[in-house]
Amino acid sequence: MHKWGLAVDLDRCTGCGSCVTACHAENNIPTVGPEQAGRGRAMHWLRVERYWEGDFPDVQLKFRPVMCQQCDAAPCEPVCPTYASHHTAEGLNAQVYNRCIGTRYCANACPYNTRYFDFFNPSWPKPLHLQLNPDVSVREVGVMEKCTFCVQRINGAQIEAKAAKRELKDGDIKTACQQGCPAQALVFGDLNDPESEVSRLSKSPRGTKLLEDVGTLPKVTYLQRQTQA
């Protein structure tokens, strides 16, 4: 049984935002337009948080890409009245759009605010719709959506491996954000495979979890930025 995880190397991440666009492109995430964005309805399953530290001239900007942390103890799951937000055997926090009735309770419970709500039916003025990824369902108004760890890629790779009668290798699965990242700051893989790159990185002394004290047992590991000696 696999256990999917992601490592984010904050010492490589430049904050460029390529992963954000890659996620939009891969997962049929709509753009909401200026008016709705101004009302706080912009949807970025993956957002690059930035925080200023200090003041001019000794000022610094810290970047931190934040997507669904795929918590093992996910607060968004028990509160969902319809099981639309639930845990899969491979440890993913799955979202069944068709089951979601839009209580938005899960999003309140999520300490990371990584769940985004469809306030309107998404629209892709023709022919923008031709870009939509057929492997990913388009969500309708009133449902909750969020980073899926590119589950379509996970399943696709597993099916391919099975068809080719071979074991899934580390690196067979790349999430869209990982693949797009110019600085190769993101590494996805199987945490149950001790040999995998992501396992190795997750054990790094630089490794930390976001809001570890909240007890959500995230499967995303942040490798802290180093400071120059």
């Binding site: 028990p78 969902c80 319809t82 009735i101 209580t103």
Partner: peptide
């Protein structure tokens, strides 16, 4: 306040054809 109020009955425990019950932990 539901995003899809027309499906409110999914909050209600009723014997659906697929025996999908609401989540009693919620």
């Amino acid at each position: 306040h539901l995003g899809r109020p027309w499906l409110f009955f999914w909050l209600v425990p009723y014997p659906s054809s697929r025996m999908i019950w609401p989540n009693f932990r919620s």
